[in-house]
Structure formats: structure tokens, C-alpha cells
Computed example of a mutant assay.
Amino acid sequence: MAIEVFNRHENKYLMSHAQYEAFYQALLQYMEKDEYNKNEFYSISNLYFDTEHDTMIRTSLMKPKYKEKLRLRAYGVPNEDSKVYLEIKKKVNGLVNKRRTALKLNEAYDFVRTKATPELKNYMNKQVLGEIDYILRMYEDLRPKLYLSYDRKALFDKASRDLRITFDTNIRCRRYDLKLEQGDYGEQLLEPGQWLMEVKAEKTVPLWLSKLLSEHGLYRTSFSKYGNEYKKMIRTQNQIRSQNTSRTQEWNRMQDMNATDKTLKETIAYA
């Protein structure tokens, strides 16, 4: 059975393609590909749930000591009978806690939509189902808000499974066609050639990794895929509003000029 409860620290790094290639090769002395990396990459697709007014992500961006997200995750593009994972991702004082249960795709959709806990099957986690049920009732109006997928490479420490490093690229997102089975297309979130690396450790990172990060000039950054997509969406909306306001102001100015010109002509004609 797949691991369904994670507790770990996560540090994130944005890098260019050249930095990725150099650092990835350096890591292979200490790390090996995980079981999903049978090919060069594997694809992960996610559906994030939030309220009508985006309560979860807006709260998360305020950087509180406690924050949480609810998402549905699949490996590749699923069909209605595919096994997917409904996940609660929490962050408490910097420690990431992820709890998930396997479900079939339609079971997951129905659970969120109806708030009726599915009949327990042997592939489900009863405790996590109860925790998700609590979140669904607490927020009341959760619905799909964002589709987000990416291509991933993942490595495990050869000496310990406590350390995992992932590299994500081709991060694509959309706020339409909010079904995992509809395909993994969308707008790009990162600049061309950019990679997002995540270092995930249950304990402190080993000394060799700290040295490698320093040698390659890589420094931690704060980066949430969902959070950055939301901020990008807000910027776009504000730009559109600003453009519309400018057009309205220009139209009003032209109307005033036309009215002034008409008045002037009438005055001249009367004189």
C-alpha cells in the first residue's frame, strides 16, 4: 500500500535548465531514481478545491502558522475507474503534513460534491476519510477551482528513504475544464526553461547536500504552485480592469470633447 501519511520539511528552489542539469548530475552520486521514474519523467495532475471566494488560498498567502489545502491527485491522466488520491496538505510552523486516501475518480468527485462519505473499501483510509469529511463540512462550499499538472523527476537518498528530491517542469494550469480526465493541458506557470526543485526531508538534510547547494549557488525560495497561479490570475484581472478603466476614461474624454466642439460650433453659428 502507498504511504498515506507524510510529515516532513520542504525547501524549494527555482533554477534554470543549466543549473538543473548540473545539480541533477551531482546528486546521482548520492541518490537514485524513485519507483515512478521508469521513464525520463512522470506526470502528476492535481485538482485543487476551494470556496467561491478562494478562502483557502487567500489564507495560505497570508503565511499563517497553520494552513491547509484539499486536492485530488492522479499520476498521469486518469479515467473514471482509475485510482486517485484525495489529499489534505497542512503546514504547521514550517512542518508539512500530508494525509491522503486512495479512491476511484468518480468516488472522489462524489465525495466532495455530496459530502457523503463513500462506502469503505479495502483501498481507502478510514481515518483520512473522516478528516476530509470534517474539512468538507467546515468549509461547506468547496468546489474545483484549479487544475494544475507538471512533469516530475524524483530521487531518493541511497542511504536513507528520509530524503527525497523532486524536479518539476512544464507546470501547466487552467481554471476551466476542471476534470482530471479531460487532459493535462493548460497555461504555463514558469518561464521557459525554469525548474522547481523541492527538497523533502523528515529530519535535517545531510551535510553533503548542504555543501552541494552552496557549491551550485542554490538558495531557498518561497514558492507555492497554487499560490503563484492565484497571484498571477489576480494580476491579470487587475490589468484587464485597468485597461477597461483607461478605455472608459478615454471614451468619456472624447465624448466631452465632442460636446465642447458641438457647443462651440453652435455658439459661432448663433453669433
Rank of each mutant, 00 (worst) to 15 (best):
S149N: 15
W195H: 11
Y147E: 05
L163I: 14
I165R: 08
D157G: 07
R175T: 15
A159D: 12
L148C: 08
D157T: 00
R174E: 09
N170A: 12
R172K: 15
K145T: 15
T169N: 15
K179I: 00
S149K: 03
K153D: 09
E191H: 10
K145C: 12
N170R: 11
K179A: 12
A159P: 00
R143Y: 02
T169P: 00
D162Y: 07
N170F: 01
R161I: 08
K158P: 01
R152N: 08
S160M: 02
K158E: 04
W195R: 01
W195G: 02
P192A: 07
C173F: 14
L148Y: 06
T166C: 11
C173I: 00
I171H: 04
L163M: 10
L163G: 03
F156Y: 14
I171S: 05
T169K: 14
I171G: 05
D151C: 01
C173S: 12
G183T: 07
R164L: 03
L190N: 06
T169Q: 12
L190Y: 04
L189G: 05
P192I: 01
L178C: 09
G193D: 12
L189H: 03
R174F: 04
W195T: 06
G183H: 07
Q188L: 13
R161V: 09
D184C: 11
D151T: 07
C173N: 11
L142I: 08
F156M: 11
D177N: 15
L155C: 09
Y185G: 02
G186N: 06
G193L: 07
R143S: 13
A159N: 12
Y150W: 09
R161P: 01
L196E: 03
L163D: 05
I171Y: 02
P192H: 06
W195Q: 02
R143M: 07
D162T: 10
L155P: 10
D151R: 13
R174D: 10
S149Y: 00
R172P: 00
P192C: 08
D184T: 05
Q182D: 11
Y147K: 12
P144F: 06
Y147S: 11
R172C: 09
Y185E: 12
R174G: 04
D157Q: 03
R161H: 08
L196C: 08
Y185H: 10
R161A: 11
D162I: 01
F156I: 11
D168M: 07
D177P: 01
E181A: 14
L190M: 13
R172Y: 06
F167K: 07
L142N: 04
D177C: 10
A154I: 09
N170Q: 12
Q182R: 13
L196I: 15
D177W: 06
D162V: 03
D157W: 14
D168N: 07
A159M: 04
I165H: 08
K145W: 00
I171W: 02
I171E: 02
F156E: 04
L190W: 02
S160K: 03
W195V: 04
R164T: 07
K145A: 12
Q194F: 09
W195L: 05
